[in-house]
């Protein structure tokens, strides 16, 4: 009963963003209804006074540091408040789009989402801390560097399986008996993959070289050692001699 009251009050606080409006009696009034309440479905809509508003002013999202000092149960309650608020905003946005109206202050959705992400971050932090203390591990999903069936490196996110590896004959056959796939199609794929990689490298090299030329043109008195440290793969002497590095002034180099 109390948690229900608290939840309702929270929802109202967030909905109206105005603590003065909250009267305990209204929360009580809800509870002494004898018939089945049908207005719970109205929680999917904004409060009536906001229906015709063209701009609805709200505060900012919850910050990480504010959430870190809250207890677990508070975070849990706040999560449900935010969840309901997000559902409400989604519903109103949908209806506005349906009726070809402007949805007032759509950044509200982003703010709620950011708060929810922050809550998740805090819960995760606590989870990791607890696991480290108790077991010495993070308790996060384990990730392993593996070589996949094409012989390429891959990050494999481990998950639980009904069968252990050695019993899973369908999985074992391609992986353990035949080794890596080595057909003509795969060889062709390797070639194309290498070509792509090579092209990417070449483009990065040219991009850096051109950028250094432009830098030399704009800032001829730059600290060359720092530039060398920033772009170690660029031949500075060659860049200095090039036409692109020459500015509209008497050449320095």
């Amino acid at each position: 009963m109390i948690s229900y009251l608290v939840r309702n009050t929270f929802a109202r606080i967030l909905r109206s963003h105005n603590a003065v409006n909250i009267v305990a009696s209204s929360a009580f009034k809800k509870d002494i209804h004898t018939t089945i309440p049908s207005y719970e479905l109205m929680e999917f809509f904004d409060s009536k006074k906001n229906w015709t508003e063209t701009s609805i002013r709200v505060g900012r999202a919850w910050k990480l540091d504010e959430l870190r000092i809250k207890s677990n149960s508070d975070l849990h309650k706040l999560w449900y408040v935010l969840l309901k608020e997000r559902n409400m905003l989604y519903t109103m946005e949908h209806e506005c789009n349906d009726k070809m109206k402007l949805f007032p202050n759509p950044e509200r959705i982003d703010k709620v989402q950011e708060s929810m992400n922050n809550i998740e971050t805090v819960v995760r932090e606590r989870n990791v801390a607890y696991y480290k203390l108790e077991t010495g591990e993070t308790g996060e999903r384990p990730v392993e560097d593996v070589v996949n069936i094409f012989g390429l490196p891959e990050k494999y996110e481990k998950s639980e399986h009904y069968l252990p590896k050695f019993m899973n004959t369908r999985w074992v056959r391609p992986y353990l008996e035949h080794g890596f796939t080595n057909s003509a199609a795969v060889k062709r794929f390797y070639r194309l993959n290498r070509e792509k990689q090579h092209n990417n490298d070449r483009k990065a090299r040219n991009r850096d070289f051109n950028h250094v030329q432009q830098l030399l043109k704009r800032f001829p008195n730059m600290d060359m050692e720092k530039l060398k440290a920033e772009y170690p793969n660029v031949d500075l002497e060659k860049a200095k001699r090039s036409k692109k590095a020459r500015g509209h002034y008497f050449p320095k180099y």
């Binding site: 479905l41 809509f45 849990h76 997000r86 399986h161 009904y162």
Partner: peptide
């Protein structure tokens, strides 16, 4: 993962959304 006979899983912080249309 759920195995038959285990207790049903509880969602701690559900991330589901619903909108009334």
């Amino acid at each position: 993962i759920y195995q038959r006979g285990n207790p049903q899983l509880r969602v701690f912080l559900p991330n589901f959304w619903m909108k009334l249309v």
